[in-house]
Design a protein around this nucleic acid. Structure first.
Length: 157
DNA sequence: GCCAACGTTGGC
DNA sequence: GCCAACGTTGGC
């Protein structure tokens, strides 16, 4: 069994939650709600731990790429939006006694200059990153220690 | 707006 | 359990 990853890349549409939204949030922390994919959910529910490093990635926008460094602040629990009929993430099939969807809390460490998707693709040392794989759609992907260090180096430490 | 890729759903 | 249809993601 492979070792648990200590590093993650998490996609967010900036129109929904940008790096600046995270910077302005109380305690620079936001709950990562709205994940409706089982694989991504399992990462949050089963593998993520407080203190894990997070690459905060802007997707579905004019300039996709890594916009900052964050960290998992804990807060593992049921995603409350699944029970909210007014939420776009409402899941009528989910019951409070058996929640389907989970969230963690994410805290900003620092905003960085954008490491654009094109720059990521141009960096051979990042070629293994799951987010760069053809057809990848997972909103949360594990990042290796080597990839993490390579991203930090590209961001200028 | 297009479209490739992939996940989910539901009929059988 | 198979698999076609459909919906979503996300870069371009």
């Amino acid at each position: 069994m492979p070792a648990r990853s200590n590093y993650w890349l998490m996609k967010s549409e900036p129109a929904e939650a940008s790096i600046d939204d995270l910077a302005r949030a109380p305690h620079r922390t936001l709950p990562w709600t709205g994940v409706r994919n089982y694989q991504a959910r399992n990462f949050m529910r089963d593998e993520m731990q407080r203190g894990d490093g997070v690459l905060f990635y802007h997707s579905s926008c004019a300039e996709p790429g890594i916009a900052g460094i964050a960290r998992v602040a804990g807060g593992l629990g049921p995603d409350p939006t699944q029970f909210d009929p007014a939420s776009p993430y409402h899941d009528p099939k989910s019951k409070p006694e058996a929640p389907r969807w989970f969230k963690v809390d994410v805290t900003l460490v620092r905003k960085t200059p954008l490491l654009s998707l094109s720059a990521m693709r141009a960096a051979p040392e990042l070629a293994t990153m799951q987010v760069l794989r053809r057809g990848n759609r997972l909103s949360i992907t594990p990042v290796t220690e080597t990839e993490w260090q390579a991203v930090l180096a590209l961001l200028g430490g």
